Computed example of a mutant assay.
Amino acid sequence: MNIVRRTVEIDASTDARLTEMAAERGQDVAAVLAEAVALLDSVVDLAGPDFAEDRRRLDEFLNSRTAAPLNSVKVWVASWDTDEETAPSIPRQDSE
C-alpha cells in the first residue's frame, strides 16, 4: 500500500467522533476515514446531475405531454418491497 500523508482541518467534535469510531472498531483514524470515503464514493455521484439528460427528458415531455399520473406513481412506489407490489403506471397523454 502506498501511504500518502495529508493534513486536514476538522472541528473538535468530528475529531472526537473519528477517534471514538476508530476505538470501537480497533482501527486507526486513517482506516475509518478510508472506509468513510469508500462508502461516500459508493452512494454519491460527485460528477453531479446530468443536466443534459434532464433537459432532454423535459423536452420530450413538453413535446409529447405523455407521463404517468402522480397519484399512480405514488401508489406504485408505496407498494415496493411489499407482498402487493403493483406494476408501474402506464404513461398517458396529459389533458392540459
Rank of each mutant, 00 (worst) to 15 (best):
M1S: 14
N2D: 08
N2P: 00
I3L: 10
R5S: 04
R6P: 01
V8D: 00
I10A: 05
D11I: 02
A12Q: 08
A12K: 08
S13M: 08
S13L: 02
S13G: 01
T14G: 00
T14A: 02
D15H: 08
A16C: 06
A16S: 07
A16F: 02
L18G: 01
L18E: 07
T19E: 15
T19D: 01
M21E: 00
M21H: 05
M21K: 15
A22R: 05
A22W: 02
A22Q: 03
E24L: 07
E24G: 00
G26P: 02
G26Q: 07
G26V: 04
G26F: 06
Q27D: 12
D28V: 14
D28F: 13
D28S: 08
V29R: 14
A30W: 05
A31E: 14
V32R: 04
V32L: 10
L33K: 14
E35N: 12
E35K: 15
E35V: 01
A36L: 15
A36Q: 15
A36P: 04
A38F: 11
D41K: 03
S42G: 04
V43T: 14
V43N: 02
V44T: 14
L46A: 08
A47K: 06
G48P: 13
P49L: 13
D50A: 15
F51D: 15
A52D: 15
A52C: 03
A52Q: 15
A52S: 15
R55D: 07
R55H: 08
R57S: 02
R57H: 03
L58N: 11
D59Q: 06
E60C: 06
E60I: 08
F61P: 08
L62T: 05
L62Q: 15
S64P: 04
S64T: 14
S64A: 12
S64Y: 03
R65D: 02
T66R: 11
A67K: 11
A67Y: 09
P69A: 05
L70K: 05
L70D: 07
N71P: 02
V73W: 10
V73M: 07
K74I: 12
K74E: 02
K74L: 09
K74W: 03
V75I: 09
W76V: 03
W76G: 05
W76E: 03
A78D: 10
S79Y: 12
W80H: 15
D81A: 01
E84Y: 13
E85K: 13
T86F: 04
T86R: 11
A87T: 09
A87D: 09
A87V: 04
P88L: 04
P88D: 00
S89K: 00
I90Q: 10
P91W: 11
P91Q: 09
P91I: 08
R92W: 11
D94S: 14
D94K: 12
S95G: 15
S95L: 14
E96S: 10
E96V: 09
E96P: 08
